[in-house]
Simulated scan of single mutants.
Amino acid sequence: MKRLTACMIILTVIASMSVLSVWAVKRENDRFISLVNAAESSYRQESDDMNERLEELEKGWKKYYTRVSYIAQSCTLDDISYAVAKLPALLEKGSEEFLSECESIRSWTEKIYNTQYPHLYSVF
C-alpha cells in the first residue's frame, strides 16, 4: 500500500510540474509576443518611439530568456537571441527584413510552447 501511495504522489508531482511549466511558458510567450507586436506596429507606423520599443523588447527578451531557459531547449532560444540582436541594425537600415525577423521571433516562441505542451504521443 505504501508503494502505491508513493507512486500516486510521484505521478501527481510530475503532472503538476508539467502543467505549471506549460502555464509559465504560455504566460511568458504572451508577454514577449506583445512586445514584438508593439515593436512591429511602431515600425509599420514609422513611429518616433521605435527606439523605446526596441529597448523594451530587448529587456523583455532578457526576462523571457531567464525564465524560459530552465524549461525550453537552448537552440531555439539562441535563434531568438540572434533575431533580437539583429533588430536594431535592421531598423537603422530601414530594411523590410525587420518585419520578417519579428515574424520569425513569433514563430520560434510558438515552437517553444508547442514543444513544451504535453501531447499524448510525446508522453508515452
Rank of each mutant, 00 (worst) to 15 (best):
P88M: 13
L77E: 07
G60I: 02
Y82D: 08
S81E: 09
A83N: 04
K86M: 08
L77R: 04
R67G: 00
K86V: 05
D78T: 08
Q73W: 04
Y82K: 10
D49W: 15
A85P: 02
D78K: 05
R44K: 09
D48E: 15
L77P: 11
V68N: 01
D48A: 09
R44F: 07
V68G: 00
I80C: 05
M50H: 14
K63R: 09
E58S: 14
L57E: 02
C75H: 09
V84L: 03
D78G: 03
E52L: 15
L54R: 02
L54A: 00
P88Y: 12
W61S: 06
S81G: 06
D48Q: 09
P88H: 11
W61K: 03
K63D: 12
R67C: 02
K59E: 10
W61T: 05
A83T: 01
A72M: 07
Q45Y: 11
D78S: 06
T76F: 02
C75Y: 13
S47Q: 13
L57G: 01
S74Q: 10
L87P: 04
Y65K: 13
L54V: 02
E46W: 11
R44I: 14
W61A: 04
D48P: 05
E52G: 15
S81H: 08
S47V: 12
Y82A: 05
M50R: 15
S47I: 12
R53I: 01
L57F: 00
C75E: 13
Q45C: 07
N51S: 13
R53P: 02
E46F: 10
I71D: 05
K86F: 12
E56S: 14
S81Q: 10
K86Y: 14
N51C: 08
R44D: 08
Y43R: 10
S74M: 07
Y65W: 09
E46K: 15
C75M: 07
A83H: 03
P88L: 14
E56P: 03
T76D: 11
Y70I: 14
E46N: 12
Y82I: 10
Y65N: 08
L54P: 01
P88K: 13
E52Q: 15
S47P: 06
S74H: 12
C75I: 10
Y64I: 01
S69W: 06
E56W: 12
D79I: 09
E58F: 04
I80H: 05
L54I: 06
W61C: 04
A83K: 05
R67A: 01
Y43Q: 11
I80M: 09
K59G: 04
L57C: 01
L57D: 01
L54K: 00
A85L: 11
M50V: 15
L77T: 10
R67P: 00
R53H: 06
T66G: 03
Y82R: 09
K63E: 13
Q45R: 11
C75T: 10
Q45T: 10
Y70D: 08
Y43H: 10
V84C: 02
Y43I: 06
L87R: 04
K63Q: 12
L57S: 02
K86R: 12
G60P: 04
A83S: 06
A72R: 03
T66Q: 03
Y64N: 03
K86H: 10
K62W: 03
N51E: 15
Y70H: 06
Y43K: 07
E56R: 12
V68M: 00
K63A: 10
D79A: 07
V68L: 00
N51Y: 15
Y70G: 11
M50K: 13
D79L: 08
Q45P: 01
